[in-house]
Simulated assay, not measured.
Amino acid sequence: MKTRTLIAALACTAAFQAPVAHAADDPGVLIACGTTAEDRVTSRGDALVRSQSWLDAQVPYSQQACHENEYGSYRTDCSGYVSMAWGLTHSRTTATLRDVATEIPRADLRPGDALLASYHAALFVRWADEAQSEPVVREQTGPDGAPPVERKWTAQTASAYTPIRYYRVTEG
């Protein structure tokens, strides 16, 4: 129980776009969300449709819960949200999303890519400005019970994140 309490206390949150550390342990070990046989090949459009499903359902944030819909069952935190959007076999953590993605130049960000830090992950939707410094993202943020949001990040916030691309994304 102490581990669950620690995980909940260290939940990834960007409600105020402030860094919060993740627990070193993978919460997926404690939370038995469903899995699929293999990571999906996912188009950029599919990733946006899948991510919109949680916005529409107002899925509440929690590192101790799963949400199941037509796209599978995933942990309802930031990395679980990106895992669901990409169609991964299971909910990854901010530390393990890199295992299925590659770092890309910021200028190459496209819808369905992600912005990642050790404490948070968000799905890239589009640029809000011509200078490509302020991304619009979709993210599952805390505190517990808060629904996912789509919002514009400041250039300063975005600069703290590494752009990554899912290894099985297609342009279709």
Rank of each mutant, 00 (worst) to 15 (best):
V100L: 01
D46H: 10
G34S: 15
T36Y: 12
T96H: 05
S133A: 15
R106W: 14
T36S: 14
R110Q: 15
P105Q: 10
G112Q: 06
A128R: 10
E134D: 14
N69L: 12
T76M: 03
A101R: 00
A107T: 13
V136Q: 05
L55N: 01
S62D: 07
R126K: 13
A122K: 01
W127S: 09
Q58A: 15
D39Y: 09
V49N: 11
G87L: 00
L123G: 05
E38Q: 10
R98Y: 12
E130P: 15
W86K: 03
A122T: 07
V49W: 09
Y119A: 14
Y74F: 11
D56S: 13
A114K: 00
A121H: 06
S53E: 08
A114P: 06
T93G: 09
G112R: 02
H67D: 06
T102H: 08
L115Q: 02
T42R: 01
E70K: 15
E38R: 12
L97E: 10
T42Q: 01
Y71W: 12
V100A: 14
A57L: 08
P111H: 11
G87V: 02
V82C: 04
S83I: 01
G45I: 09
Y81W: 00
Y119K: 08
V125Y: 06
Y81R: 00
L88M: 11
D129G: 13
L97T: 12
G45K: 14
E103N: 11
A117P: 03
H120R: 07
A37L: 13
V41T: 07
L88I: 08
E38D: 09
L115V: 05
R92E: 10
S118L: 14
L116Y: 06
C78A: 07
G34Y: 14
N69T: 08
A117T: 13
C66F: 01
S53Y: 07
R98G: 14
Q63F: 04
T36P: 07
D129H: 13
G80R: 02
V82Q: 02
R106A: 11
S133T: 15
S62M: 04
T76A: 05
A85R: 00
S73A: 15
L115H: 04
L88K: 03
R110M: 14
V136C: 04
P111Q: 14
R110H: 12
V82T: 10
A101E: 10
S83Q: 01
L55D: 00
E70G: 12
E38M: 02
T96L: 10
G112K: 04
L109W: 10
F124Y: 13
R44N: 11
W86M: 05
H90S: 15
E70C: 06
G112T: 09
Q52E: 13
S91N: 05
S118E: 12
T96G: 09
